[in-house]
Design a protein around this nucleic acid. Structure first.
Lengths: 324, 324
DNA sequence: CGGTGTTACGTCGAGCGTAACAATA
DNA sequence: TATTGTTACGCTCGACGTAACACCG
């Protein structure tokens, strides 16, 4: 490498910063001031007197100023030393505080997690885990952002969220995905709908029923569109809503039935509506955990990740759930 | 030396302080964050990428936490890294400020000097130098403390003042002294006193005049007491005052004449009173510069010291002055 | 003498550069 | 392919300890 600092244009600000001095020297100075003598300070620092003496000498040389008045028997600080000591200790406190902050992050005493996810994931997988998380880690802030598959991908890619949960989507380029849970599509209808009690439920059975769909930008809608054997009224619905909660409201109002994933059926907004898995075709929705590649999750984000997986396991016995 | 940290009782506070990390690593971290990449940061730091990479690795290892997310092409900070960066920069600013303070002290832009001295020294040697000093170094604070020889010695010994100027005194133990100026004792009297014009002035000439003295705790009084050939009215005075200003007032009131050093005669409070050196005996007062041994003077104190010496030279042509 | 801080000197390891590698755009 | 970050491997210089010294109580 070319020797630096030769002609280079970029001298920048360069305020003669302590390029020379080291934390060792400053720590040594602090301890000498604290102890008022070299010998005990050296013991405290776990070095010999000679090493300590050398450190102080170097520090004074680097600063071009005498900091300590040596009197063989007792040691005192120069007025300059006293002034400098203030700042050194302040800097130490700041650094120590910084390390403490890191420790807090690692120990989950502090932190902030931002998650983007599909509505059902938020309501069914994350919300139930929050009370315990809030109780056990009150210092961790959580932002839950409801979004579409595309929005999730974009938010993950831009780093706006720590990770996302939802369907795969090409937006956002290459993202690191990991299967979290798969579930089957099923019929949601008013409780007295006879099909809910049928021995077998086929997609064709829905052909004559009024059908309420999700807007076409949703991953679920697109999943149904690619599934084989879907009757026309399922593929082209006269009424489309953008999220499960509205869908449940529509079904409850008698506007029709719908097909939703089993996980979404766990949404509290379903209320007393009935649900059963579709036997043919088996339409499986895969929900992924989506991260930026080569980006480490913060400890708090890991915690929520784990809570998410745990919640998946809790719900794994429900009809139509296929945990990965 | 016994290996430290074994059983020792003194674990003290020991808050897992950054015992490992160094300023180099922190500076490297700061620069990586600033540049957003290793290569330019390494150039800025005048080291190779490999060295920089190693520094960051060590820092992360010391902190037990990933600070930088490497993406080969671009580099981002972990949330932990962002939080830590704040504190690191704050600590840097504090240190830089400390160094700046030292620089200010050295360049006489800031500073504080405390001086203890005899009244005549303050009024005659220091006061005249102050206007220029205040003009040239407005950031330097000066404390002038008027005191007796004993008080000066004690204040110097205790470190309450940077240095003292006055007569020698055993109080305060071993002090570093340096002759500053010597001057002869002389007669101070109302301007019409015939002795002021005499060809020769002998101590015995004062025997019949009313005499006003300084209190016996003053160095001048003690000096006169040990001088040979002093008439009784000089040695035992019915009226004693504690400082030259009062003495001048007394003489002006016609209460008597007195003997004072030539330097003191330069005191502005003398007004129109006459002064002439005593021819026999020649009584010489030695004024010393008094410092604590093995204690370096601050730059500001040195400045005042030099101003003091310069003022001595300015007055060296006056009658009775014997600069050393 | 006991204890202080300083200096001299030999040793060892941390920190660096060179070079080869891996991975992205 | 060009550029970036990582790893491997010597090397050198700085930081340490031992020891001898100088100094004060």
């Amino acid at each position: 490498m070319a020797d630096c600092g030769t002609i280079g244009i970029n001298f920048r600000f360069m305020p003669v910063f302590p390029n020379n001095l080291s934390l060792r020297q400053l720590r040594a100075f602090d301890e000498v001031a604290r102890q008022g003598a070299f010998a005990p300070a050296a013991r405290e620092l776990c070095i010999t007197q000679s090493a300590l003496s050398e450190s102080i000498r170097q520090l004074e040389e680097a600063l071009g100023m005498r900091l300590v008045d040596r009197t063989t028997r007792t040691v005192g600080l120069t007025s300059a030393g006293q002034a400098f000591l203030q700042d050194v200790r302040h800097a130490f406190d700041t650094l120590e505080q910084g390390v403490q902050h890191l420790s807090d992050l690692a120990a989950l005493r502090r932190g902030k997690v931002r998650i983007a996810a599909a509505p059902s994931v938020l309501a069914v997988l994350l919300m139930p885990a929050l009370p315990r998380l809030r109780a056990e880690h009150p210092g961790i802030e959580v932002d839950l952002i409801e979004d579409s598959a595309e929005g999730i991908a974009l938010r993950v890619h831009s780093g706006q969220v720590d990770f996302g949960v939802g369907a795969a989507h090409p937006a956002g380029g290459e993202l690191l995905t990991q299967p979290l849970v798969s579930d089957q599509m099923g019929l949601v209808a008013q409780a007295d709908e006879p099909l809910l009690q049928a021995a077998q439920l086929h997609a064709a059975d829905l052909a004559q029923l009024p059908f309420v769909g999700l807007t076409t930008d949703t991953a679920i809608s697109q999943l149904l569109a690619t599934a084989p054997g879907m009757p026309a009224n399922v593929l082209h619905t006269p009424l489309r809503v953008s999220n499960p909660a509205l869908l449940f409201d529509a079904v409850r109002q008698g506007l029709g039935v719908s097909l939703i994933p089993a996980l979404t059926a766990q949404h509290p907004a379903r209320g007393a509506l009935g649900f059963r898995v579709l036997d043919t075709p088996q339409v499986v929705r895969r929900t992924l955990l989506i991260q930026r590649p080569r980006r480490a999750l913060s400890p708090a984000a890991q915690l929520l990740c784990e809570a998410l997986v745990a919640q998946v396991h809790t719900l794994s016995h429900q009809a139509g759930m296929l945990p990965d």
